[in-house]
Every structure is written in structure tokens, then in C-alpha cells.
Amino acid sequence: METDRFSRLNQYRSMWVLVLFDLPTETRKDRKAATRFRKDLLDDGFSMFQFSIYMRFCASRENANVHTKRVKMCLPKHGKVCIMQITDKQFGMIELFHGQKEVETETPSQQLELF
């Protein structure tokens, strides 16, 4: 019983950071900046959810804030970027479709964090 309560509370404590972006790619310089931004996200532990949506699981709101600050430090000069934090519980309620077929959302792999 206590384990169920802890698990439920943990779903509200653990967070997902989603980075949604629309970056220009008309010039070589724009493409290079967009590629650099994507690489920075991957280097910080984000993974691609869709072409212009990257996500990262964080064990706590404080940890999510750390990664949000890192994203802000590598923002490209041009384009639109949105950073969103949602709880694990909210993320679990996402309905995901490929075409008209609903698919299960993948459970994130256990992530090791060193302090």
C-alpha cells in the first residue's frame, strides 16, 4: 500500500522536459545552427520524440530546471523554441498514433544520474 502511494507521488515529482522548435534552414549558416542545437540537446540526454520535438526524463523538478537552463544557454539566434515541463503522470496520459493506429507510449529506460 505504501509502495503504491510512493509510486503515485513519484509520478507527480518526476518530470519530462520537452523542447519544441521551428528553426530556419534556408542558409548554410541557419542549417549549421539548427544542427548544433539538435546536437546540444542530444549531448544533454534529450531524445527525439518527433522531428522538432525532443524530450528528456528528469527525476525531479529541480533536475528539470537544470536541463531547462542548459537548453536556454544554447538557443540559436533565430527561430522559435518552446520549453515545456510536464509531470511523468501527465506524460503517461499522452495518446500516441502512427497513422490511425494507436501505439503504446514507450516506457523510458532507467536513467543513471550521478551527483
Rank of each mutant, 00 (worst) to 15 (best):
A59D: 12
H78Y: 12
Q100E: 15
Q110T: 12
S60T: 10
E113S: 08
T35I: 02
R5F: 03
I53R: 02
E106N: 07
K29C: 02
A59P: 10
I86N: 03
R36Y: 05
C74T: 13
S7W: 06
N63G: 03
Q111W: 01
E104D: 13
E26M: 11
L114M: 08
Q50I: 04
F57H: 09
M84V: 03
K39N: 10
Q111M: 03
E95W: 00
F6T: 14
F91E: 14
T107M: 09
L75Y: 00
W16R: 08
Q90I: 11
D43A: 10
K89Y: 11
E26C: 01
H98V: 07
R38L: 03
G45L: 03
C58G: 01
Q85C: 02
R36D: 11
N63W: 08
R70W: 01
V19R: 06
F46V: 05
S14H: 05
H67K: 09
E104W: 04
K77Q: 05
C74F: 01
H98K: 15
K69E: 15
K29Q: 12
G45Q: 09
L96D: 04
F6K: 11
H78V: 03
F91Q: 06
R56S: 14
F115M: 07
Y54S: 11
M84C: 08
K101H: 12
F51L: 05
A33D: 12
S7K: 13
R70H: 07
R38C: 05
L23H: 15
D88A: 12
R70K: 14
V66K: 10
S47M: 09
F57E: 11
D40Y: 03
E104Y: 02
M55H: 14
E102A: 06
F57Y: 08
D4G: 06
A59I: 08
P76I: 02
R56T: 05
A34V: 01
C74L: 02
D30L: 01
G92P: 04
A34M: 05
C58T: 04
V71G: 00
K29N: 12
V66I: 12
N65L: 08
Y12G: 13
R70D: 14
K69V: 13
K101F: 02
F115C: 04
V17K: 04
T107D: 11
H67V: 15
R36G: 08
V71E: 07
C74S: 11
E113Y: 08
I94S: 09
G92M: 07
Y12E: 10
R56P: 03
I94N: 13
I53N: 03
K72N: 09
S7N: 12
N10H: 15
S52Y: 06
V81D: 03
K39H: 08
E95Q: 15
L20W: 02
F49Q: 07
L9N: 08
E102C: 07
F91D: 01
L23M: 05
E104G: 05
M93L: 15
R28L: 09
L96F: 04
F37W: 11
H98D: 15
M84K: 08
R36V: 01
L75I: 03
T68F: 04
G79M: 02
F49V: 05
D40I: 00
T25W: 00
